[in-house]
Design a protein around this nucleic acid. Sequence first.
DNA 1: CAACAGCCTGGAGTGCGCTCCAGGTCAAGG
DNA 2: CCTTGACCTGGAGCGCACTCCAGGCTGTTG
Lengths: 124, 124
Amino acid sequence: MSRFSPAQVVERTGFSLDTLRYYERIGLLDGIARTPGGQRVFSDDDIAWLGILRCLRDTGMPIAQMQRYADLCRDDTTMAERLALLEEHDREVQRRIDELQAQRVHLAGKMDYYRSLDTRSATA
Amino acid sequence: MSRFSPAQVVERTGFSLDTLRYYERIGLLDGIARTPGGQRVFSDDDIAWLGILRCLRDTGMPIAQMQRYADLCRDDTTMAERLALLEEHDREVQRRIDELQAQRVHLAGKMDYYRSLDTRSATA
DNA sequence: CAACAGCCTGGAGTGCGCTCCAGGTCAAGG
DNA sequence: CCTTGACCTGGAGCGCACTCCAGGCTGTTG
């Protein structure tokens, strides 16, 4: 059970210190320990939770939904709801991937067009 | 060479009227025809260009980069630069897809965990 | 030719997710 | 001890990409 200073957490999670404070303020982080003087001390569990937040954030989950998930995680009778939330989010991510891939096809067409012009001028 | 009213363009492109006006204001749209009274009239070419903007926007290109691309498209000696811009963007999109797919693996692990708990309670 | 939906402009406002700031406190090294 | 860099709080500010608004003109329809 290691303990981490704010600076160490910044380094490990990639979140800025301001973002960590912001997340605590809005309830995404909760029960973060403090030194007698009031400075934050993060545990392994906190780091792990931040990893989950990063995964959700990086897959485009809005803050409001992360708050909903965080709330569910404070009540241990909500496993089914947490699963449902993650499943819905996962479908959302898959839709996003599909859309990006579909649009890449259009990009490829456009690029081919420019390459065909390039070839002409290069061989002229 | 059809001509479209703003409302028709909204329907065909999915951009809101305000967004179309905004895009014109910031130079993403340019040379849009007007009636004698000053109302916009869109051509097939305009619709096609809006399709390109939608593709770029939906793949996450920032407005500033779309402006750069729009500028390049006003100068017909910039094919190589346009291609380079699109290629860089395409790599960006591919990176985004890769990241989403990597994070989906984590999501899947988390969901499996919740499902394993669910099974226990369902069979109890 | 009157009505009325649609469109115009410039500019202000919105929502999201941070990010920065002022003014102070804390804690580890010398 | 004393310094000094890390950290604290509450609150304001920012960048992005729109979105909305007031007040007024347009143009098709009956």
